[in-house]
Design a binder for these strands. Structure first.
Length: 197
DNA sequence: TTTACGATTAACT
DNA sequence: GTTAATCGTAAAG
């Protein structure tokens, strides 16, 4: 499988409005920016209310409601009391689907604010993505396609991601629906959490 | 009201 | 390989 990320804003919006698994694959190579931190997304996972690993599965909870927002909205939550994980809501509003951003590489070395200590060019793991972007719970619910400070951008042709080998496999760190191959990553990238082959 | 558990990571043995 | 850190959420009582 080869990476074919959207190359303009309209294609990105259409991608996020469609199937969440397609969106997870297509977000590889897209960029997320926050206050001058620009990261290239290299690892994602899809979630959907029809499978039990999703926070929206068969539940009417606060978390589930946040996954009912229109596509392109952020769903940020605290994991293990420590890590802020950022998801992009996907599909038609009310579908309860999202893509978790699990890994990235730093896109621009000249960030406007100081790099987070210990975070270098490679940012493997969803907790580290949140840390590298300085994401907090206050960013939950923002529209990432139209945001000023926190924004999702389509891929750049000059990044060289298009056409690169894209791998697919089971999701990480879950105990339900463990066999669904809904994790995507750019083969060999240092910004991918293990396994990354 | 109380309890148990993560869409994780770092630091151990 | 195992475990601790840490807290919002949700299920149990």
């Amino acid at each position: 499988m080869r990476a074919a990320p959207p190359l303009d804003q309209r294609m990105l919006a259409e991608l996020l409005a469609g199937d969440t698994v397609d969106a997870a694959a297509g977000l590889i190579g897209c960029r997320i920016v926050h206050h001058g931190h620009e990261l290239l997304i290299v690892e994602t996972e899809a979630y959907h209310e029809t499978e039990p690993a999703a926070h929206s599965y068969a539940r009417h909870t606060t978390r589930a409601a946040k996954l009912q927002r229109p596509p392109g909205h952020a769903y940020v939550y605290l994991s293990y009391g420590i890590h802020r994980l950022i998801n992009v809501v996907t599909g038609p509003p009310g579908e309860g689907a999202a893509v978790l951003l699990r890994g990235a590489v730093r896109q621009l070395p000249h960030a406007r604010i100081d790099p987070v200590p210990g975070i270098d060019g490679a940012i493997p793991g969803p907790g580290r993505v949140g840390t590298a972007l300085a994401i907090g719970l206050e960013h939950d619910g923002l529209q990432l396609l139209a945001g000023a400070s926190l924004r999702l951008l389509p891929a750049l042709a000059t990044d060289g991601v298009t056409g690169r080998e894209l791998r697919r496999g089971p999701r990480i760190g879950i105990t339900k629906a463990v066999d669904l191959p809904w994790r995507f990553w750019l083969a060999g990238s240092r910004g991918v959490s293990a396994p990354r082959g």
